[in-house]
Design a protein around this nucleic acid. Structure first.
Lengths: 183, 183
DNA sequence: GTCTATATAAGGATAGAC
DNA sequence: GTCTATCCTTATATAGAC
């Protein structure tokens, strides 16, 4: 898959520094041949960013619909999903986080808007949990900022994976980030 | 200061996409004139990254030497410093976090090594706090990853600053990230 | 110090043969 | 589909006049 090879290169070298010749070498063809499969370099970035965004949105929608879960349980499900995305799909998720600023308009604007909406929906989960029950009194906006960024540290775990297993990492992060919010 | 103008542009546009003509425009001269003040574009990135790294190292050394502080108090002092750096020196700190991969060798290797040493020293603070007293049993490595990344969310707070003040943001993050570790 | 002009390299993308 | 050759733009950095 060209898109996944692109995600790996965009992560490692950055989007502007990744040449079509680099990507072609990874895929095993000449640069010109890539254009039989893709329209442009910019399109590859769009596909990566919006696919990841869609996956996050779909999971959040699922959680919002789970009426049997408490607020804290919803938050835990969301945080676990973020952690697993960073563990299992690092290339795509890092490109979405670090390279989306290179999206051309109107895609960059759309992307930022989608992110704002996502943040607001996550704040809503926290507010509901605070009102109805088991989440302690905090500023939802500050908590969302913290949660969504904290998982970015998993980037460095990937470089060795020696200090701790994926499962231990997830449990430690959940304990630190979510259980600390229990009333 | 050319270095600070560079930090702002490197943050906004990314290091590879920032042209010397962009920087010259920001400074108010032609691109060629910049070379009477700096040696190269690469040198600007080095200055930014290592100055920030030095500031973090200096603060950590200070905290390590404070024998009157408990482990948890040391950790809180470190986390507050990170938060304040992200609030007050966003351009430089973001370039150090996001653009350091564009450092040429041997600078990139040196930088990554310094980071590893910093992480290990922070783990040591947590281990000491766990053994001697008031930090709950956790995996120090996971906690350090989480703490150092969580503050990156402040990037998004800067875009509006309307939801919450700098002081509230700091207190909420400390409450979430540090107090949750109290035994 | 400043500038204009330019050397040299590399980028994304296309043309057209097969 | 693949390739070679190339167009055109832009990049960092330097030369040399003032």
């Amino acid at each position: 898959m060209i898109t996944l090879a692109a995600a790996q290169l965009f992560r490692e070298k950055g989007f502007p520094s990744t040449g079509m010749r680099d990507l072609a070498g990874e895929v095993g063809v000449e640069a010109a041949s890539l254009y039989n499969h893709i329209r442009s370099k910019a399109e590859l970035l769009q596909e990566i960013c919006f696919r990841v965004a869609n996956d996050f949105n779909a999971q959040l929608m699922e959680v919002e619909a789970s009426e049997n879960l408490t607020g804290l349980e919803k938050l835990e499900a969301i945080v676990r999903f973020h952690i697993q995305m960073w563990i299992n799909r690092l290339d795509e998720v890092m490109v979405t986080n670090n390279e989306s600023k290179y999206l051309e308009e109107p895609y960059n604007g759309t992307f930022l808007n989608e992110r704002r909406v996502y943040v607001r929906r996550l704040e809503q989960v926290i507010e509901d949990g605070m009102r109805k029950g088991n989440i302690k009194k905090v500023q939802p906006y500050a908590v969302v900022l913290t949660l969504m960024s904290a998982v970015r540290g998993i980037e460095f775990w990937h470089r060795t994976k020696k200090n701790i297993s994926a499962e231990e990492l997830e449990e430690n992060m959940v304990l630190h980030l979510v259980k600390g919010l229990k009333k």
